[in-house]
Write a protein that binds this DNA or RNA. Structure first.
Length: 573
RNA sequence: CGGGGAGUAGCUCAGCCUGGUAGAGCGCCAGCUUUGGGAGCUGGAUGUCGCAGGUUCAACUCCUGUCUCCCCGACCA
């Protein structure tokens, strides 16, 4: 392909509305253009790279035994009513009406659609296990689209759904997908780490997310330094190993005036103690009934954990009026002693003596709180977010925090959707049972941008060989020089015959200009042809990752490029 | 939705406070020179100043409304 015939609108300046490097680079390298908030056009180069990611996804999914299908992006409302998700997902679904005023939605995901298909077409355990996938545009009315392709209203996703006869069989399907994901991201040149994750609205028992570590990531991850554990913050568990006995622990409870100190920091400053010596007493409303939650002053409640502990549908902090009614004090002075509502104690408070609590009296706290002595909790459980520095669940490693972008997510779904949509099969005994499902997503367009976020330098993108829009760039310094162009086109033809895609920079531009563009676009290999070099019988071969080039004799250039490409590809196998 | 910011040439931005009829750099077109890391000179084209009202002799500038985009928070691949 000739550069002069391609639409590759590179930008020298950084576009105003791009914040993170990958987004800036996608715009500057002419891969994408914005149409509206969260809506992007893939330009020729961006689309080539996207198709390469898709091809890898297809190969690995096929290899794992999944079958590709393509479902409609637009669905009748009725099927979403059957699972109850028309209601629960109403904030993310785009809803439209046709001219008959029939209600339709643009699919944010496809559990209902595939489960309905399986319900109709599969009836025997002999047809299981099976796994169907598609690569398709999803629509979600995101609260806030951002960072280019990272969070869009319309994005490309690979979604797969497995159906099994038993939960053990489903575990094996899950494992296969997990392994396929490891392969996919490795081949894309991405370092994606699997972490334990919460299943969120999807339902189901367990799940892993594949996270690409980057400071601009929207998720917090906790990882053990001994490699024993990694989990999304929403899900993570840890053990605080700091001592829980503070000075004067043996003293009886004692009131102390803390005027206007309703915030942890204020009380800590006033009493000259560490925030963790203070006990936070938070009032929540769980399905309309209030509970108190106790945790160290330097920690926050994980409402997901709290909801699970209480087996509640909905959990939210109580409003100030409710807090006043329950505690008899202004917000900020709640304490566990004397409360008439259930009290849940976070396990990090185990063995606490000498703590400071609210007195349920405005502008007053109590000193010398002894958990065992002064309280009989209704539950003693894990309801807090862990902190960096905590012990990992194995009680050996220590946790540290990093941020990541979620590029893939695998779920064990159970039978939630098969029951709702009647995806039953007859087992060996002729008994009808719901299929056990799993679902598996990869954000394909997001993955593409994550590759760039993880692989770039100050000059531009550094494409991993398997997803580069073109593998080789031939920079012709003097396109008017006939020998240069004929050598370039001959070489390109030979490389293409070997399955290596080539872009020829035949533009009438100064060399420096072309080199800058080459680095910005980040093709893995650059072959430079100049009049002077050719006169000496050489071309220059430069990998994007190297600072300097290597001179190769003209008649060895083909082999040299083939060898380099092979090396690059081997590294991602 | 709450909080912050921005809409002026294809891009990055100045002008607005203090009203007088729109600018720079880059890009684009033509020519000459240049030619190994985003060239120089000369000439040229390009704007409903986001939109709608209002104030005024006069509005990019002041006022009101409105739309869009970006950033921070709650949602997710």
């Amino acid at each position: 392909m000739l550069w002069s015939k391609s639409l590759i609108p590179t930008l020298k300046e950084i576009p105003q509305d791009a914040e993170i490097p990958s987004h800036q680079l996608m715009l500057r390298a002419g891969l994408i253009r914005r149409l509206g908030s969260g809506l992007y056009t893939y330009l020729p180069l961006g689309f080539r790279a996207l198709r390469k990611v898709e091809a890898i996804v297809r190969e690995e999914m096929d290899r794992a035994g999944a079958q590709e299908v393509l479902m409609p992006a637009m669905h009748p409302r009725e099927i979403w009513d059957r699972s109850g998700r028309y209601e629960s997902l109403k904030n993310v679904m785009f809803r439209v009406k046709d001219r008959q005023a029939r209600e339709m939605v643009l699919g944010p995901t496809h559990e209902e659609i595939i489960t309905d298909l399986v319900a109709r077409e599969i009836s025997s355990y002999k047809q299981l296990p099976c796994n169907f996938y598609q690569i398709q545009t999803k629509f979600r009315d995101e609260i806030r689209p951002r960072f280019g392709l990272m969070r869009c209203k319309e994005f490309i996703m690979k979604d797969a759904y497995s159906f099994d006869i038993s939960s053990e069989a489903a575990d094996s399907s899950y494992q296969k997908m997990y392994e396929a994901y490891v392969n996919i991201f490795r081949r894309c040149g991405l370092h994606a780490m699997p972490v334990e994750a919460d299943t969120g609205d999807m339902g189901g028992s367990s799940s892993h997310e594949f996270m690409v570590p980057t400071d601009s990531g929207e998720d917090a991850i906790l990882e053990a330094d001994d490699g024993s554990y990694a989990a999304n913050m929403e899900r993570a568990e840890g053990y605080c190993d700091l001592p829980n006995v503070f000075p004067d622990a043996d003293q009886p409870l004692e009131e102390i005036a803390t005027p206007n100190a309703g915030k942890i920091e204020d009380v800590a400053d006033l009493l000259k103690i560490e925030p963790r010596q203070l006990v936070k007493t938070l009032i929540f409303v769980a399905d309309k009934s209030p509970v108190a939650v106790l945790l160290p002053g330097d920690r926050d409640v994980n409402e997901i954990k709290l909801r699970k502990v209480l087996d509640a549908q909905e959990v939210a902090p109580a409003d100030p009026q409710t807090v006043r009614e329950i505690t008899g004090a202004e917000v900020g002075f709640a304490g566990p002693v004397g409360l008439k509502i259930p009290v849940i104690v976070d396990r990090t408070l185990e063995g606490l003596r000498g703590g400071v609590i609210g007195a349920n009296k405005t502008d007053t706290h109590l000193l010398h709180f002894d958990l065992a002595r002064d309280l009989d909790p209704d539950a003693f459980v894990d309801v807090a977010f862990p902190k960096a520095g905590d012990l990992a669940p194995n009680r050996k490693g220590h946790l540290s925090e990093k941020r990541g972008v979620e590029v893939g997510h695998v779920f064990k779904l159970g039978t939630k959707y098969s029951v709702a949509l009647g995806a039953n099969v007859l087992d060996e005994n002729g008994k009808s049972i719901p299929a056990v499902m799993g679902c598996y997503g990869i954000g394909v367009s997001r993955t593409l941008q994550a590759v760039i976020e993880q692989s770039h330098d100050e000059n531009g993108i550094i494409w991993p060989v398997n997803v580069a829009p073109y593998t080789v760039l031939i920079t012709v310094l003097s396109p008017k020089h006939e020998e240069s162009m004929s050598r370039a086109t001959d070489l390109a033809a030979q490389l293409e015959a070997q399955g290596i895609d080539v872009l020829i920079d035949d533009r009438e531009e100064r060399p420096g200009f072309k080199f800058k563009d080459a680095d910005l676009l980040g093709f893995p290999l650059r072959l430079t042809l100049g009049e002077r070099g050719l006169a000496k019988g050489i071309m220059e071969l430069k990998p994007r990752t190297e600072k300097s080039f290597e001179e190769v004799p003209v008649d060895q250039a083909l082999d040299a490029v083939l060898a380099k490409v092979k090396t690059l590809r081997e590294a991602l196998k």
